[in-house]
């Protein structure tokens, strides 16, 4: 039996100029915050920006951006809603606030389904919040989303430096281009990644981010957004 879904993904993404896949090698390092706020910043600058939350078991972009009552519509597929200027699709639309207990292969299947039926239309940027790590699910995503460029999120921890190197080597073998590395939750004045050719910058721990959660206007005024904005200059 032939699964037809992957044949149509490129067509679904044909109107999207650039696809930025935000990845990181574990949870809790700010991938979702960076993906969501990046989409927000791009939209704020006047770009047509879309956001796809593919971290199904831990979907959180809708919480960060306070997208509560938006809903997709059905036409020749699923049309993602526009929320705070961002064209947004997430598994949260289907799980109604419940936990999503998916094993790796089911994560891939669900992502494939969503990629096959979502009509993105014309976009300057599609930011993808990837499943954490370099498991099957992430590898499937970069296989299906062929034009994805990686935006790697890391933290200053030594362990993180090592995992980052290994993971980047893997993606390089898979010919996935690396857009850059962002260090989040940085503490030291000098990042251990500063010498990397693709290092884009660091973002400090920002205590005001927590209170801004769910409020895009407030998020845009945080130091987090300001620092990410500087990094996002690579898109201009």
């Amino acid at each position: 039996m032939i699964d037809p879904r992957s044949s149509v993904i490129e067509k679904r993404l044909a109107g999207v100029k650039r696809i930025v896949a935000v990845t990181g090698w574990k949870g809790g390092i700010g991938k979702s915050s960076i993906a969501s706020v990046l989409a927000l910043l791009l939209a704020h600058k006047g770009h047509r920006a879309a956001l796809l939350d593919l971290d199904f078991t831990g979907a959180s972009d809708h919480i960060i951006l306070g997208i509560n009552d938006a809903h997709y519509t059905e036409e020749t597929g699923l049309n993602p809603p526009l929320a705070h200027g961002i064209t947004f699709m997430s598994m949260s639309f289907f799980s109604q606030g419940r936990a999503v207990p998916l094993r790796g292969s089911d994560v891939s299947q669900a992502a494939l389904e969503l990629l096959a039926v979502t009509q993105w239309g014309e976009q300057d940027f599609l930011v993808v919040d990837m499943p954490p790590g370099i498991g099957d699910a992430s590898l499937d995503m970069v296989r299906w989303i062929k034009r994805a460029e990686l935006l790697a999120v890391t933290t200053p921890a030594v362990l993180s430096v090592e995992t980052l190197k290994r993971s980047l080597a893997l993606f390089e073998r898979l010919n996935v281009p690396l857009l850059g590395i962002i260090e989040n939750l940085s503490t030291a004045a000098h990042s251990p990644f500063v010498s990397h050719a693709k290092f884009l910058g660091s973002i400090q721990r920002d205590p005001s981010l927590e209170a801004a959660t769910g409020h895009p206007e407030q998020i845009l005024r945080t130091r987090f957004a300001e620092e990410l904005g500087k990094v996002a200059a690579v898109f201009d």
């Binding site: 699923l78 598994m91 289907f94 799980s95 109604q96 419940r98 936990a99 999503v100 207990p101 998916l102 089911d106 994560v107 299947q109 669900a110 389904e113 969503l114 039926v117």
Partner: peptide, 9 residues
């Protein structure tokens, strides 16, 4: 829409 949602429900 997404058959894997069976796991949710």
């Amino acid at each position: 829409f997404v058959p894997e949602m069976a796991h949710v429900y």
